[in-house]
Design a protein around this nucleic acid. Structure first.
Length: 305
DNA sequence: TATATCTCCTGCGGGC
DNA sequence: TGCCCGCAGGAGATAT
């Protein structure tokens, strides 16, 4: 599933290949891909045509292409962005022109070579948004400024992620200490800390020896700092290995899978021995999804037993 | 206002 | 072989 490291891998791949390119033509093949864009899929496709990609950015699991008028408008247009969320199964893939369009292709764009380049490698390419489970989406939105940082409006409410150089762990700990909710629920709350999904939440909790049902306010500040550091470490390690893949659903822009799933300590290991104490890893239902933890290293809080 | 739950969706695997 | 059901899960919408 695409979480922060996987999205960052995609961002880097896109930045390497599409900066400066102009969107010649775009199509939204499945309206669910543009469901958050009120004017509709056709309007989105029409609006994208002719825009130049000036930057590829990310916050948490949100990715966006900063766009400007390639013709150089007389009056400066407000900055805007194509915001992309990969959902559970979204992929942003680059292909040569004329590539086969699979049945899960939800949207695509033809990107012209950057102006001033004429090498073969800079020929037009196709950007495919492939999404089997259709939880992902594209959205055109204006840019805005939040605490001195330029963000697309739909991303304005998203907190900084642990890999952000301006991430303030102490501020996040203060927020967590004021919450009665269970700590795992808060790790998954993108307005508190972004980029953490179910897999890395379980991995971070295991590393910090904390059960996900423990109320955040009951955890000490040092323990919360340890947990945030664990989240950063696990995501750093995943990023170094190209992300986590369980199947063909998550791949980079070239369609290649990451290898971090081989390094997971607890997620998906029900019944297997804990790598610290050898107790069998347990699986519990939490928020309509699975949580994996060690029954010895991560004892349940009393109320949840 | 804060917190908890529901819903969207598709493909796969297991059971019958 | 074919059908049904549960599971996977991010995040906005809705309920409490």
């Amino acid at each position: 599933m695409p979480e922060l490291p996987e999205v960052e891998v995609v961002r880097r791949g896109l930045a390497e290949h599409i900066l400066g390119r102009v969107i010649e033509q775009a199509s939204v093949l499945n309206p669910r891909a543009s469901r958050r864009y009120e004017p509709g899929p056709d309007a989105m496709a029409a609006h994208l045509a002719g825009l130049r990609i000036d930057a590829v950015s990310r916050r948490g699991k949100y990715l966006w292409l900063e766009l400007s008028d390639s013709a150089g408008a007389e009056h400066e247009e407000p900055a805007e962005a194509l915001v992309v969320h990969l959902g559970m199964s979204g992929q942003m893939l680059l292909h040569d022109l004329g590539a086969i369009r699979g049945k899960h292709l939800r949207a695509h764009a033809i990107l012209a070579a950057p102006v001033g380049t004429d090498e073969p490698a800079a020929a037009s390419v196709e950007l495919h948004f492939v999404d089997q489970r259709t939880f992902g989406w594209w959205l055109l939105a204006p840019m805005t400024e939040v605490n001195g940082t330029a963000l697309p409006e739909p991303v304005a409410h998203i907190a900084r992620d642990p890999l952000d150089p301006s991430f303030d762990a102490s501020a996040v700990v203060r927020v967590l200490k004021g919450k009665r909710s269970e700590i795992k629920r808060l790790l998954l709350d993108q307005t508190v800390i972004s980029g953490v999904g179910n897999i890395y939440a379980d991995e971070a909790l295991w590393r910090a020896r904390v059960h996900g049902n423990r109320p955040a306010e009951k955890l000490s500040k040092p323990k919360l700092h340890e947990l945030l550091e664990a989240a950063k470490t696990v995501m750093d390690e995943a990023l170094a290995q190209g992300g986590t893949s369980f199947d063909a659903l998550y791949v980079n822009v070239n369609g290649e899978s990451g290898y971090f799933s081989r390094s997971l300590n607890v997620y998906g290991r029900e019944g297997e021995p804990c790598l610290r104490c050898a107790a069998p890893i347990r699986r519990e239902s939490f928020m309509n999804r699975s949580s994996y933890s060690c029954p010895v290293c991560q004892p349940r809080p009393r109320a949840a037993r």
